[in-house]
C-alpha cells in the first residue's frame, strides 16, 4: 500500500514525542552538572549518591516488598476473577473488577483513605499493599479472561470427557494453558504496583515512602539529577518486566 510521506513524518514525530523526554531523563542522569540544562560531562556520581541515600534505599525496599506481595495476591485473585467472568454469567463481578480501572485513580485513592481512617487502620505499607491489590485484580483478570476467551472451549470438555473431574480439568488442562497469561498478569501487576503514585499517595500516610512518593517529594522540593538516576533505574526495571510479559502473552498489554 502506498504511504504518503506526510503520514510517515507525523508518525515519526509521534514516536519522537514519546521517547525524547525519556531519553533526556536518562542522558541527564549521567551528566556531571547539578542543572538539567546542558551536557557538561559524563559521571556515575548521581547513581553513587543514590545508593548512599538511606531514605531512597528504604523507599526502594518498600516499593519492592509492596509490589511483590500485591502482585502475588492480585494474580491469584485476578486469575480467579478472570476465570469466573469467563465461565459464569455474573453481573456484579465484572462491575467490581472493571470499574476500578475505568474511573480516575484519585477516586479510589480518596475512598480508600476514608475507609482506612474510619476503621482506625494505620496507614502504611499494609494499607498501600491492600489498595494495590484492589486495583491490580482487574488488570490480571482482563489478561486471563482474554486468554480464556481465545482458548478452545472443547478442551475443557475433552478433559471431562476423558474422565477428569472439574478440578482435575482445571489443574491439568486449563491452568497450564492460561499460565503464560497468568505470569504476564503477575508481571503487569508488579509493574503497576511499583509505579503507582496516586493511590499510594493517599493510602501511605505520613511515615511511609515508596519510590514514586520519594520522586514526587524530590521534584516538588528540589530537582537534582538524583531523580534522573532513580528514574532511569526504575524505567530499566519496568522495561525488563514489560518485555518479559509481552513475550509471554503477546497482546496482553494491549487489553488494558
Amino acid at each position: 500500500m502506498k504511504r504518503s510521506w506526510a503520514l510517515y513524518a507525523a508518525a515519526v514525530a509521534g514516536y519522537l514525542f514519546l521517547y525524547v523526554p525519556l531519553v533526556i531523563v536518562v542522558v541527564y542522569s549521567f551528566n556531571d552538572s547539578r542543572l538539567n540544562a546542558e551536557w557538561v560531562g559524563f559521571t556515575f556520581d548521581w547513581y553513587r549518591r543514590l545508593f548512599a541515600n538511606d531514605e531512597m534505599i528504604q523507599a526502594a525496599v518498600n516499593s519492592l516488598a509492596i509490589a511483590a506481595v500485591a502482585s502475588l495476591v492480585s494474580t491469584v485473585l485476578g486469575t480467579m476473577a478472570g476465570f469466573a467472568m469467563h465461565r459464569y454469567r455474573s453481573r456484579l463481578l465484572p462491575v467490581l473488577v472493571l470499574t476500578p480501572i475505568a474511573i480516575p485513580e484519585i477516586l479510589m485513592g480518596v475512598s480508600l483513605l476514608l475507609f482506612f481512617v474510619l476503621l482506625n487502620f494505620t496507614l502504611g505499607i499494609v494499607s498501600v499493599t491492600l489498595a494495590h491489590i484492589a486495583f491490580c485484580i482487574g488488570f490480571v483478570a482482563i489478561v486471563v479472561r482474554s486468554r480464556l476467551a481465545g482458548m478452545d472451549e472443547s478442551l475443557t470438555e475433552a478433559a471431562r470427557d476423558c474422565g477428569a473431574t472439574p478440578a482435575q480439568a482445571f489443574r491439568l488442562v486449563t491452568l497450564p494453558l492460561i499460565m503464560p497469561a497468568v505470569i504476564a498478569g503477575a508481571l503487569m501487576a508488579f509493574t503497576l504496583s511499583i509505579d503507582d503514585f496516586v493511590i499510594t499517595f493517599f493510602t501511605a500516610g505520613a511515615g511511609t515512602q515508596t519510590l514514586p512518593l520519594q520522586i514526587y517529594s524530590m521534584i516538588k522540593i528540589s530537582v537534582t539529577p538524583e531523580v534522573n538516576a532513580v528514574s532511569t533505574l526504575l524505567m530499566l526495571l519496568t522495561l525488563v518486566l514489560i518485555v518479559l510479559a509481552s513475550k509471554l502473552a503477546p497482546g496482553a498489554l494491549r487489553t488494558s
Binding site: 533526556i24 541527564y28 520522586i215 530537582v223 528514574s231 524505567m235 514489560i242
Partner: peptide, 14 residues
C-alpha cells in the same frame, strides 16, 4: 509503562 511521575518530570526538564 514507565513511571507516571518520571514522564511528568521529563517535561519539567524540557
Amino acid at each position: 509503562w514507565s513511571n507516571f511521575l518520571i514522564r511528568v518530570y521529563a517535561w519539567m526538564i524540557i
